[in-house]
């Protein structure tokens, strides 16, 4: 069965058909969620929620790229996830563990900038890029992830995050520049091919 047929029977309520679509797109959606949210558990939650609401709202799908439509649902799920996270912070108030012992370094006292261990962790390019993505405002992150990672075109991105085309263009340009600036700090990690000839080592 091809994608169109699967979508058609999923629209009639066939869960098995929809699940075959899920299997085909779950990696894409999970990756997008991971890069937008920067955290694996949240990314998994957002992906699951996105598929759930996609199935429920499948009647609203009117042709076009199904992947773009799914990514649009995913972006919404990511925004929801971020809102939920903001609404119920999970940090315990008292600096005590479950055994009533005083915790030595409560999480909320930690320095949010990168500590030496995190820097070690970021010694991999992937972590460095994720770190720089996380430093972007979420609207910028969503645009750059959908365009450069998922390969959507401007119109699809505009539909996905419900913003005008002009906004997408300017956000994308700024996000790319800011990412570039951020990545300068990880200069030695960048593969040689990505380095500028004119760039001097810091």
């Amino acid at each position: 069965m091809d994608e169109t047929a699967l979508i058609a029977s999923a629209q009639k309520g066939d869960l098995d058909a929809f699940n075959r679509l899920v299997l085909a797109y779950q990696d894409s959606l999970y990756n997008a969620a991971l890069r937008i949210l920067g955290e694996e558990d949240q990314a998994a939650d957002a992906t699951q929620n996105a598929f759930l609401s996609a199935f429920r709202g499948l009647s609203r799908y009117r042709g076009g790229s199904f992947k773009a439509w799914l990514l649009r649902t995913l972006t919404n799920a990511c925004y929801d996830e971020l809102r939920r996270q903001k609404r119920r912070p999970t940090t315990p108030l008292l600096p005590e563990t479950e055994e009533d012992e005083e915790q030595e370094s409560p999480r909320w006292l930690a320095d949010t900038s990168m500590n030496p261990e995190e820097k070690m962790e970021a010694a991999e390019l992937e972590h460095a890029i994720q770190h720089c993505l996380n430093a972007l405002p979420v609207e910028f992150r969503a645009v750059v992830v959908l365009t450069d990672l998922q390969g959507l075109d401007y119109a699809e991105v505009a539909a996905a995050i419900r913003s005008p085309l002009g906004t997408i263009k300017s956000r994308l340009a700024r996000a790319r520049l800011r990412l570039r600036e951020c990545l300068q700090d990880f200069w030695e990690l960048l593969p040689a091919a990505f380095r500028l000839k004119s760039e001097a080592r810091p």
């Binding site: 299997l23 779950q26 990696d27 992906t47 450069d148 990505f194």
Partner: peptide, 25 residues
């Protein structure tokens, strides 16, 4: 060039596999 490199870097991000199946029940 900077813009182009950023784009290439992002494209080169390794694709992760989904940690589990997200099929619906």
């Amino acid at each position: 060039q900077q813009l182009s490199q950023t784009k290439n870097l992002l494209r080169a991000l390794p694709a992760r596999r989904a940690p589990r199946n997200f099929t619906l029940r």
